[in-house]
Amino acid sequence: MNVPAAWYLVLAAVLFGIGAYGLLTRRSALIMFMCLELMLNAVNLTFVTFSRTLSDIGGQASVFFVMVVAAAEVTVGLGIVVAIFRRRSTTSVDELSEMKG
């Protein structure tokens, strides 16, 4: 018998927490994108676990779409990072404060 779903769910929760902590504390835009990927992967793991538990393929189809959206998000996000770097020659999000009131 396979290990219970709760093990994988707790693992995904911890992975999500690590990703969220990195997103809140790191200031390089590139590293923040990587932390975003960690969080998305945690959610994907949860989807697949529930898909197995409930014997429903819908969870895996959702993961498929999450992956597509993540790829699009990374493409546009890194395009923005490159555009910002060209103008400001930094990727630190603390430097981007023109809109501060």
């Binding site: 994988y8 693992l11 994907n44 697949v48 898909s51 992956m67």
Partner: peptide, 10 residues
């Protein structure tokens, strides 16, 4: 973890 949970394609 995906393979362990029958999500081979993913």
């Amino acid at each position: 973890a995906f393979i362990a949970q029958q999500a081979d394609f993913l």
